[in-house]
Write a protein that binds this DNA or RNA. Structure first.
Lengths: 344, 344
DNA sequence: TTTTAGCACTCTCACGGTGAGAGTGCTAAA
DNA sequence: TTTAGCACTCTCACCGTGAGAGTGCTAAAA
């Protein structure tokens, strides 16, 4: 004889597993036929009644089977699911793919998005790693043509930024190089505050360059999310819950519209102090656009220095186990890569 | 009394206009009520019969009104539509927005995608401008940490590329700078062929750098499409033709899957010799994924030097007039910007 | 006290029939 | 060549029906 509560947990887990597979309401008879529960369907029915009363299951209509509620999924994720890891061969394959991408951050991002989308069969999103504060490393000024100068600014952590600098009059490359060397000497390893506090008499050219440098460094840290990569959008459209295009539209907008996505990320994984993978089910009452979907998010990078976020967006009826382990693994991998890159 | 053929053209145009608005089959009575045609519904019915026989209209079923066929749209776009331009105030607004984006190519791309999506109420896509061949302009080698060196390569046309160069042993910045100067002297304005033909004895460091330069320059021109920007994906999901998610999925895949998109672009606008805006209606029998949608495409940039592509993807029932003029205008604007940037 | 068999009950869904409405094509007259 | 008139066809919304699924309850069994 099994403990009453034990059976409730078992059956909730089974219903979620089956429902994630089939997208069909699950009945008592179906369960006893497929699993060796050792009890009759009537007993299962009692348990189903309990779980329904507890708010973890619901019936679409009287004569239908049970479907997990959002609360049911939450309970499952928090208490029932366990901490399964990705199978080792999968991990090795993924690691290998990142290894092949070399030092190219853009390729990392695309690869991460592709892997997440593929593993979870849902939509994925990855934001480029963003330094939380800018630290001057190196400057180059390169004459292009006429009064336009290309400024290449290297920041700590391997972040490279380019800007065009429009001068009042043409300047020779020699003079540009001299100015760059001068600025490099004074600004080495300074942050924005340090550069602002600099008390040196620069010439007009250097001042122009410094102005642009300040602007560019000010931009760093102003936003927590950089370029956004995504993949697998067409995956979610094949899910039955997104056939009424309205919920699909809302979900798409979260990925497309930068402001929505930034709000979501900043209020979840990019909040300092929060660690690990976060699971948002059905918008959690906060995000109307996510009412019909779930999001699995994680931060990656080196906290306090350079971080980004990644995650998966799919139907509420999602294979949380696999998705969460993939998100966890890819984020830890990216964290390692970012840390290595910073050490360079 | 109006010429028979004249009436056919008028009525086809009216049906397309109405159908694009309402997405409902249009009947003879509806037309005579809304437009002052000067003839009875019976006459209109005869004309409808003609147009149906010509293959420009069809009936979803016997007792329904008429709907344009793909052939009908094609005829409309080619013969009936005229060459309406965007209203001047709209043009001014758009021009102003690009002006505000400064010299930032990434912002141009995002802005173009946003404008196209917004104006056409459909999905838009823009590929970054790609030089057709690489010409060496300038090189910088910057020590970062240990054996990792940041290589910044400036190509003609303002294209800047960065790569990490991993050395066998650490090298001081002085020596890196000297090597860069050396390479700059020898490679100035050379293309890949010229660099390969170079007959100079370089030291190990310079040879490493040159190897990477060759790789990077070889990458230019290898693909005709660079980074792809898009916007307005959620627009198309609101169209009634995309409620059955299968056609929406196929359309999304064209935008998401690089290989599909590249094939499409290279076989249409990026084919040399083709000029102006191209309209593909219903996949034109060639692209299965586009069977249920239309694409309005154009090339932009400076032909033979640096070009990109842009376009709009929407339902076949699309407001071709407005979309085509927007695509034409934005592409000409981007062409100007790219030309200016090349002159710098 | 827990489990189970039995059973009545409820609800959905697929099916077929029906009638209103829309739009047509044809015919014959203008 | 155009038009009025009309019969015809097809869809679509509506309804009623019955099979099927799954339930909750009750009373007996363990």
């Amino acid at each position: 004889m099994v403990d009453r509560e034990e059976r409730q947990r078992l059956i909730l887990a089974l219903i979620i597993r089956e429902y994630v597979d089939t997208a069909q309401p699950i009945g008592s008879q179906y369960l006893v036929e497929r699993y060796d529960l050792g009890v009759s369907s009537a007993t299962v029915r009692n348990t189903l009644g309990d779980l329904t009363e507890m708010g973890y299951l619901r019936q679409p209509h009287t004569s239908a089977g049970r479907v997990p509620t959002e609360e049911g999924y939450r309970f499952f994720v928090r208490q029932l699911m366990g901490h399964a890891d990705l199978p080792s061969p999968v991990k090795r394959t993924i690691t290998h793919q990142f290894y092949q991408a070399g030092h190219d951050v853009e390729r990392w991002m695309r690869l991460a998005a592709s892997i997440l989308a593929h593993q979870s069969q849902a939509a994925s999103l990855v934001t480029a790693p963003m330094p939380e504060s800018a630290q001057f490393k190196h400057l180059e000024l390169i004459a292009t043509h006429g009064r336009q100068v290309l400024m290449v600014l290297v920041l700590a952590g391997g972040d490279v930024r380019q800007q065009m600098l429009a001068l009042a009059e043409p300047v020779a490359q020699d003079q540009l190089s001299a100015t760059a060397i001068l600025i490099n000497q004074h600004c080495q390893n300074l942050d924005l505050k340090g550069i602002n506090a600099l008390n040196v008499q620069f010439d007009a050219l250097a001042q122009d360059a410094l102005k642009l440098i300040r602007e560019e460094m000010g931009r760093v840290g102003a936003s927590l999310t950089g370029e956004v990569y995504h993949d697998g959008l067409s995956n979610v459209l094949s899910e039955p819950e997104f056939v009424e295009s309205e919920s699909a539209r809302k979900a798409l907008r979260v990925i497309e519209e930068r402001s929505l996505l930034e709000d979501l990320l900043e209020r979840t994984v990019l909040t300092n102090g929060v660690e690990g993978v976060q699971v948002l089910i059905g918008g959690e009452g906060t995000w109307e656009e996510l009412r019909d979907c779930s999001v699995v998010l994680a931060r990656y990078g080196v906290p306090g220095h350079t971080t980004g976020a990644l995650g998966v967006l799919g139907p509420i009826r999602m294979a949380y186990g696999r998705t969460i382990s993939t998100v966890r693994f890819v984020s830890s991998l990216l964290s390692e890569l970012v840390a290595e890159r910073m050490a360079e």
